[in-house]
C-alpha cells in the first residue's frame, strides 16, 4: 500500500511536469516558455528590457511583444550589416511580425518565445504589419523598423535604448 501511494505521488509530477510552475520545471520544459498574462511582471519581456540590446559579440537582440493591436515597442532601431536576433512573444492572440518588402515574417504566439535571426545590408525604413488575423484592429496593427548605419546606431544607443517612438 505504501509502495503504491509513493509510486502514485511520483507519477503525478512525472506526467504533469509541464503544469508545475517552478524554476526547475521551467528548466526541464525548455527556455522558450512564458506566461502571456505575466509578461510585464518578470522575465525578459518587462518594460525596460524591450527594444534593442547590444550583445557582447557585436550583434543585437530585439525583444518585442505583439498584442491586440500593437507591437511594443512601436518603433525599433537596428544597425545595418549586423545579425539581429529577434525574440518575440504574444500577450494574447496569435500574431505575425511581417516586414513589408522583405521575406521576413515571424510568428508571435502566446506562451512561447519565437526566435529569428534577421540581417539588413543597407540602412532603410521598414513597416512591419501583423499578418495573422488577430481581431477587430488587425488591419491597423503596424510598427516601424528603422535600419541605421552601424556607427550612427552606437551613438544613438547611449541616449535611447534603440527606441524611436516619438515621445
Amino acid at each position: 500500500m505504501i509502495v503504491f501511494t509513493v509510486l502514485i505521488l511520483c507519477v503525478i509530477p512525472a506526467t504533469r511536469y509541464y503544469q508545475i510552475d517552478q524554476p526547475l520545471m521551467r528548466w526541464l520544459r525548455g527556455p522558450n516558455r512564458v506566461d502571456p498574462a505575466e509578461l510585464h511582471l518578470s522575465g525578459e519581456f518587462v518594460e525596460n528590457n524591450l527594444g534593442t540590446e547590444i550583445d557582447p559579440d557585436g550583434s543585437v537582440t530585439v525583444r518585442m511583444i505583439a498584442q491586440q493591436y500593437l507591437f511594443v515597442p512601436h518603433c525599433v532601431l537596428v544597425p545595418a550589416g549586423v545579425p539581429v536576433h529577434l525574440r518575440i512573444t504574444s500577450a494574447d492572440a496569435a500574431h505575425t511580425f511581417a516586414l513589408i518588402g522583405t521575406h521576413y515574417a515571424v510568428k508571435a504566439l502566446p506562451g512561447t518565445i519565437t526566435e529569428a535571426q534577421l540581417q539588413f545590408a543597407n540602412p532603410g525604413e521598414y513597416t512591419a504589419a501583423c499578418a495573422e488575423f488577430c481581431g477587430a484592429g488587425h488591419f491597423e496593427m503596424r510598427s516601424e523598423l528603422k535600419v541605421v548605419p552601424r556607427e550612427q546606431f552606437q551613438a544613438l544607443d547611449s541616449v535611447k535604448r534603440g527606441g524611436c517612438v516619438a515621445r
Partner: peptide
C-alpha cells in the same frame, strides 16, 4: 471606427467597445 493604419493606430472601439473589449 478605423484607427489609422499608416501610423499604426488601432481603432478605439476594438478594445474600448462596443465592437471589442480587452
Amino acid at each position: 471606427a478605423f484607427g489609422e493604419g499608416s501610423r499604426g493606430i488601432p481603432p478605439c472601439q476594438a478594445c474600448h467597445g462596443p465592437v471589442g473589449y480587452k
